[in-house]
């Protein structure tokens, strides 16, 4: 199983993903991604942009594709929404990976027991 994790410093990157634009390597990979494999995004932007209706729409698009959002955390008295700490991203990705491995094991054991 492959995991792909991306952190976006600006809203533009997420808008490109939601719109299917692909004018650089990162957005091209996302545009060609097989969504059966996990894809994580960890955005970072100002609180005003985070609460904007466009952002809500883009997040809906992303969610519809099966992309997993790691939401930003408020900083500077809720003026900014910062990307979560790298350790948090790593733990989320690890947890997802372990969960998927467990599901695969359970799936393979149930099929093998069914064959007996």
């Amino acid at each position: 199983m492959l995991l792909f994790s991306a952190s976006f410093a600006f809203i533009h990157g997420r808008h490109e993903i939601a719109g299917g634009l692909c004018d650089d390597l990162l957005t091209t990979i996302v545009r060609a991604w097989d969504y059966r494999k996990p894809l994580f995004v960890a955005p970072s932007m100002s609180t005003c942009i985070w609460r904007n209706s466009f952002t809500e729409e883009h997040l809906g698009e992303i969610d519809g594709l099966g992309i997993m959002l790691i939401p930003p955390v408020p900083v500077n008295g809720d003026l900014e929404r910062a990307m979560v700490e790298p350790a948090t991203i790593i733990s989320r990705v690890k947890a997802s990976y372990k969960k998927q491995k467990m599901e695969q094991k359970e799936g393979s054991s149930s099929t093998s027991s069914g064959q007996v």
Partner: peptide, 12 residues
């Protein structure tokens, strides 16, 4: 290209 297709759809 996929990018120009997306731009047409998005009205860019």
């Amino acid at each position: 290209s996929a990018h120009t297709l997306a731009k047409i759809v998005g009205g860019i």
